[in-house]
Amino acid sequence: MSGGRLAREGALLAWFGARQRDLPWRRTRDPWSILVAELMLQQTQVARVLPRYEAFLAQWPTATACAAAPVGDIVTAWAGLGYNRRAVNLHRCARAVVADHDGALPVTLDGLLALPGIGPYTARAVLAFAHESDQVGVLDTNAARVLARWEGRSLKPKEAQAAADGAVPAGQGWAWNQAMLDLGATICRPRRPGRSGGPRCDDCPAMPWCTWAVDGRPEPDPAVGSAGVSGGQSVFEGSDRQGRGRLVDALRIAPVEPAHLAAAMGWPDDPARAERVARTLVADGLAVADADRTLRLPG
């Protein structure tokens, strides 16, 4: 192993050890608790997750408890987190864990990936953060941005995952992966032309080993378009996604009759759009339609 890699590992782990946040999901190695946290944190800020994470686990502390609950109750508890389909995915996953694994999450990558609603990121996060595996790199948009800049080039999907897996130091799976996520979220941030923020290279513990930084941060930024790096979310205001969210919020209170559907979704003058988007909620398992087309949360 090169001295440069050893120095980078030491610098990043020391940085993380000195500044890591005290978050509840970092104080547990319970696989179910880790899974709940990871699904809640996808595309949702930590501040919004904190109050709901512990409340959720207080009510459903195990996959078995979650599986026994109506999916509508899980969707109701998801209020404020957005991307409500994740609640349905978590419930489906819990039921599969109970049916196929006696209530305990699998301990292999293939076993986790076979569960409904569990993708490559979440499966590796469970292995790294619950089992402290040093065989998997947790590759979210933040870690992927760090790796592309370290390499100084855009990475293809298999390259990015291989780089993430290969970067984990022996015996440091938990700390290393947490450090990579934090580094990308707080220091190795995306460039924002005309806006504040952007990468804070002078504060980066790994800057001496970052090809892009050492080369003077030339354009194009290698992170742009690299595998795993988000290209930014689409506009939310006025989107179908906003209408979906409004309808789920309304359903958390009471069933919605057909005559009130368009108003509940914020499109009182466009009932055809409301009907079309509402059908996607039914298809995703977030709502069910009665015989008279009244929508309600699933039981």
Rank of each mutant, 00 (worst) to 15 (best):
L127F: 10
A179M: 09
V168I: 14
A164E: 04
R145S: 11
A160N: 05
A164R: 04
P169T: 05
K158N: 04
A164Q: 08
A125Q: 05
W176D: 01
R124K: 15
Q178I: 00
T211I: 06
D203T: 08
W209N: 08
A164D: 03
L183N: 02
R200V: 02
L147T: 12
R124F: 07
A123N: 00
R200I: 06
P169E: 03
W176H: 15
R145P: 07
N177P: 11
W212D: 03
R200S: 09
R192Q: 14
Q172K: 13
R191P: 08
D202A: 15
D182P: 02
P157S: 12
A162W: 01
E151R: 13
A162E: 14
P208R: 02
S196W: 00
M207I: 04
L127N: 02
W176R: 00
G137R: 00
L147R: 01
S133P: 09
G173T: 01
S196P: 09
A170V: 14
E132L: 10
D182S: 10
A163F: 10
D182A: 14
R195M: 12
G197S: 11
E159W: 11
P193F: 03
W150D: 04
F129I: 07
R217P: 00
L147V: 09
E132I: 04
A170F: 11
G166K: 07
G171N: 13
P157A: 11
C188A: 04
K156T: 08
P190G: 14
C188P: 02
L139S: 08
D165S: 12
W212V: 01
A175R: 10
T211A: 15
R195V: 04
V214K: 13
G166S: 13
N142W: 00
W174R: 14
